[in-house]
Computed example of a mutant assay.
Amino acid sequence: MSPLLACARGLDRLATGAGRLLGWFTLAMVVLQSAVVILRYGFSGGSLALQDAVVYLHGAAFMLGLAYALQTDAHVRVDVFYRRMGPRGKAWVNAVGTLVFLLPLCAFILAGSWHFVASSWAVRETGASADSLGGIFLLKSLIPLAAVTLALQGLAQLARAVATLAQVESPPPKPQAVRESSPRVAEEVGA
């Protein structure tokens, strides 16, 4: 079970690193959006490329942040029963949910977006305006990439759930073992 958990930890580190990077993307998005507002209302100007950069950063933060949200348990879940469950119950829910819902959804997104992204790459799709940022094909590439990173994080979650379910619970200590280990109890028993 150790190699499985080591792989899960590696995938967790990948998601954590991506989450930290996306935090910086969010900060850049706020700074750029502020610059757009200042240019528009302070100087009666603007930049379509800056506006596009805000949209691209927002798309990257959202699409690539999915795996990080799953890893940190920040995703939406109907938590009525889950929060009352023990570790094994939660492991069952996570394992079944990953196998039945998450991985098929990721496969559907990957298969459904592949032609869409390939068509965009074939023409190197850019913006409709001459002064836009361009590179829309790169932005669209985040869709299958998000499906892959989410599926990998789902596999890490599945590995942890399987490890939890595979743990054999040790039986509680026998009452005799407690009596024998205590000298006072041994004297009272008459040993």
Rank of each mutant, 00 (worst) to 15 (best):
Q51A: 09
A163W: 03
E188I: 12
L27C: 09
G19M: 04
T149S: 03
L14D: 01
M1G: 12
V76T: 02
T98V: 13
H115Q: 15
A151M: 04
A186G: 02
G127Q: 06
F43C: 00
R40V: 05
Q167S: 01
S113E: 00
S113C: 00
D73E: 05
A18N: 04
G135F: 12
A161R: 03
L150A: 11
L21E: 06
S182D: 08
R20G: 14
L152W: 00
L11S: 05
S129M: 02
S2L: 13
L158D: 00
L4V: 12
V117F: 14
P104A: 01
R179H: 03
S2C: 07
G65C: 04
R77L: 09
L27Q: 10
L39N: 12
A118Y: 08
G134F: 00
A147H: 06
G42S: 06
V93K: 01
G65M: 02
P87V: 03
Q157K: 13
R77G: 04
P87N: 13
P3I: 01
L57F: 07
A147K: 05
V189I: 12
V148L: 11
G42F: 06
L48C: 01
A191Y: 13
A118V: 13
L14Y: 01
T149C: 06
V178E: 02
V36I: 14
G59F: 13
G46M: 03
Q51W: 08
S44M: 11
F137L: 01
G59C: 11
L22M: 06
V168F: 11
A163V: 00
V76H: 01
P144K: 10
S182P: 05
V148R: 14
D73L: 10
F43Y: 08
G134E: 00
L21G: 09
V185A: 03
R84Q: 15
S113L: 04
A128S: 15
L99R: 02
V96I: 09
